[in-house]
Design a protein around this nucleic acid. Structure first.
Length: 215
DNA sequence: AAAACGGGGGC
DNA sequence: GCCCCAGTTTT
């Protein structure tokens, strides 16, 4: 078993500050508007931060709120968000979003079960929105977090959902917004699935992956 | 040139 | 569960 998970996170905390800003922080520093955070988060899946930020910026210039978005043709949305990954699918999700939000009084819902019902919003996106927009103690398990928690031996799970449930019991119910940022940044910046940057990893000497062969 | 890749929907 | 969506990065 690796070091205590709280110490693991504390050790990484300073390290990841020098990294390229993950989308978790990127969105929160730009806006506190739940609508924009939701839209940007939907755009961010399978897409780099810079690409997401540029696309979101273009889109928000034309559609700064729900009402404006509802008036935008799907083709227009598609052109604005290109070249984020799966832009055709996402344009479809965003086109349907205003109507879906009518069920929630035209506001962004805060509960996970409600968020998941929105088009283009799965568990990872819902938890990220809860964390960033509403400052909830939501555990955002993307593929990086899932992989790293298993690699470092903090969980032994098959699916991201299982990881989320397991982590919920392992960690104090606070500061999850920061934890999400730390784990995502570490997973993308250093402890990457292919060619991890072990040479500059601050906790490489504690890594349970023998000779750093396991990723 | 080919494969991998920061999810989610539809079936 | 399995397959699809797409541009970008890595090998």
């Amino acid at each position: 078993m690796a070091i205590d998970i709280a110490l693991f996170l504390e050790t990484l905390k300073e390290e990841v500050k020098s990294y390229k800003v993950p989308v978790v922080d990127l969105i929160s520093v730009q806006t506190r508007d739940p609508f924009k955070i939701l839209v940007a988060t939907i755009l961010s899946s399978r897409t780099k931060d810079e690409t997401t930020a540029a696309a979101a910026s273009r889109l928000f210039r034309e559609a700064p709120d729900i009402k404006a978005l509802a008036k935008l043709p799907e083709k227009k949305i598609m052109d604005l968000i290109y070249p984020v990954g799966f832009y055709k699918s996402k344009a479809g999700y965003l086109k349907k979003l205003p109507q879906a939000l009518e069920n929630f009084d035209n506001r962004i819902p805060e509960e996970i079960d409600d968020l998941i019902k929105l088009p283009g919003v799965g568990r990872k996106t819902a938890n990220l929105v809860r964390s960033v927009a509403f400052n909830k103690d939501a555990i955002c398990v993307d593929t990086h977090v899932h992989r790293i928690m298993n690699k470092w031996g903090y969980v032994n799970t098959k699916t991201p959902l299982e990881t989320e449930m397991a982590l919920r019991k392992k960690l104090p119910q606070n500061h999850w917004q920061e934890v999400n940022g730390i784990l995502v940044a570490f997973g993308q910046g250093t402890c990457r699935p292919v060619s991890p940057h072990c040479h500059r990893c601050v906790i490489a000497d504690l890594c349970p992956a023998a000779a750093h062969q396991i990723t």
